[in-house]
Amino acid sequence: MAFREINAKMVEATVTPGQRLFSQRGAMLAYKGEVSFTPNTAGGQGGVMSMIGRRVADEDTPLMTVEGSGTVLFGHGGHHIQVIRLAGDTLYVEADRLLAFEGSLQQGTMFLGSQGGVMGMVRGQVSGQGLFTTTLKGHGAVAVMAHGGVIELPITPQRPVHVDPQAYVAHHGDVRNKLSTALGWRDMVGRGSGEAFQLELSGSGAVYVQASEEKL
């Protein structure tokens, strides 16, 4: 596997010739062997069109391509790192949370309004995702950053999961999400519980939640 967790805040990636990695710029801590780091102006995969797409969607985190043969240590900003392995399904994550991912994964952007229309857009605003989010699809591993430790909550069709939008990190699988509001007269007079908005995820897959309500 390409990523090995060294501790909660550092991962080691093995790079072999012909198999490249993408990582956030400046996130390399150390490396052994002959490895080269090339800034990726397109911000990821695809041609010019997907680059423009990312620019418009504000999902164009500066990335670099890591190639060669050797091992590379990644870490950034003292954030906790969660390695997520994908077996053909799609991961939805904010671009600035991506620390590194294997080149075998297909990168794309998704308009949140396409999932639930206007409510999807509202949901994006509340969870800090904005109107767009990044998708990674295929077989491979992703290292995702979070503020504080991360727990994985499985979602099964019988058991939907409710998540604080600020603590939401990423999710994968066949998952529908909707914003459930519990706004009442208490919130109107400023005596709310502070938990008026929740993200309800249902279907089958998993959601990753960070132990903090702070954004990256």
Partner: peptide, 26 residues
């Protein structure tokens, strides 16, 4: 223009010994 990868410059260690790293760039 064209951006920097942020990794143009490193400290290189060779020889016998141990190098201590912290897991963050902060």
């Amino acid at each position: 223009l064209g951006g920097v990868s942020g990794e143009e410059h490193q400290f290189e260690f060779v020889g016998a010994g141990t190098v201590l790293l912290q897991s963050s760039e902060t």
